[in-house]
């Protein structure tokens, strides 16, 4: 009887231990989720191509870098899918712009580990930011009633010296996250800074003058080049002709504020608009502001090369 009782007790203890073990096993599987993640993934995510380029240049091959951006042709209001959100949540660092120059507005629609977001605009001075006061979204929400906010230009990388400050911020974040590779990052940063200084030097030889820009998105570029810029608010250009007489009159009135006959577009304008503007005596030039955020269409191209092309277009246009 006593022996039987002893056997039952041992069996019961074994059952309890194994049950507890199963539970622990389940817990370990779950720890792979974003909760309680303690280990490094050696992966960095970026939210725009220029930031991705700078991060890759600084990090080199030692850290995997993943660009989370809308695919070509995706609408402006785009949200990453579950897999991309998981990638972001599992990254050691998320390289983004920051308050004052908000890019990748989809970031407000997803849950991200705030402590791992590197705001590259954090070390910019107040005067580095560009606010457009005549483009305001009037709205009403909460107890405050109707109000509006100015439009903050996000394409900071179009100014090479601002981009340099962002690159330095990226390097600091990488050094903090991966201190054992700090010297590699510093060496790589020096190379990138040299290229950005090269772009800044090219900007200085661009003749001073006036330009009209299709949107405020090009303001960092025009400011860096020392150009007086009258911006339009042509954010969405229809491919089919859709210009009413009133709209044309509005454009003419606005364009008269500038002496320039050069209109810079941050994306290729539709043919009908190009023809119409030519007929009115304006020359159009297409630049790349990387506003879409994704990789360049030409896989062989890169940020520095495209910026050089932008400057070449600008220089040629202003010399005419």
């Amino acid at each position: 009887m006593g022996k039987q009782l002893l056997v039952h007790c041992v069996l019961l203890i074994l059952f309890l231990v194994s049950f507890n073990g199963c539970q622990n096993g389940g817990g370990d599987q779950e720890s792979g989720s974003s909760f309680g993640r303690q280990t490094r993934s050696n992966r960095v995510s970026t939210v725009s191509y220029p930031l991705d380029y700078m991060t890759r240049r600084i990090a080199g091959d030692s850290i995997a870098t993943e660009l989370i951006a809308p695919p070509a042709g995706a609408p402006d209001q785009w949200t990453p899918d579950e897999k991309q959100i998981q990638t972001l949540q599992e990254s050691d660092l998320i390289i983004a712009n920051g308050p004052g120059a908000p890019f990748a507005r989809w970031m407000v629609r997803v849950s991200l580990p705030e402590s791992r977001i590197c705001h590259t605009t954090d070390n910019l001075d107040l005067q580095d930011f560009i606010s457009v006061k005549d483009y305001r979204v009037v709205h009403r929400h909460g107890p405050e009633g109707e109000h509006s906010h100015p439009f903050m230009v996000a394409q900071t990388w179009l100014d090479p010296l601002t981009a340099k400050k962002q690159a330095q911020q990226i390097a600091v974040a990488l050094e903090t996250g991966y201190p054992e590779m700090a010297s590699v990052f510093r060496d790589n940063l020096r190379g990138l800074e040299k290229d950005l200084d090269g772009l800044a030097a090219r900007m200085e030889v661009i003749p001073d003058g006036q330009v009209i820009t299709s949107t405020p998105r090009l303001k960092f570029l025009t400011r860096a080049a020392g150009l007086e810029d009258t911006h339009l608010l042509w954010f969405d250009l229809p491919q089919e002709p859709s210009w009413s007489a009133t709209e044309e009159q509005d454009f003419v009135a606005r364009a008269k504020q500038s002496n320039s006959k050069n209109i810079l577009f941050d994306t290729a304008p539709p043919d009908w608009l190009k023809n119409r503007l030519n007929a009115l005596g304006y020359q159009t030039y297409s630049l790349n502001s990387f506003s879409h955020g994704g990789l360049p269409e030409d896989a062989n191209s890169d940020f520095i090369r495209i910026m050089n092309e932008n400057l070449e277009t600008l220089q040629n246009g202003l010399s005419q």
């Binding site: 779950e30 974003s34 909760f35 949540q89 629609r109 997803v110 849950s111 580990p113 705030e114």
Partner: peptide, 23 residues
């Protein structure tokens, strides 16, 4: 933010973590 779960060492018993607005 997601940092709260890490800070309190909260583990999931079922399902997945917060992913986007409305979760």
């Amino acid at each position: 933010s997601l940092d709260y779960f890490k800070f309190r060492n909260l583990q999931l018993a079922q399902g997945q973590s917060l992913s986007r607005l409305g979760d």
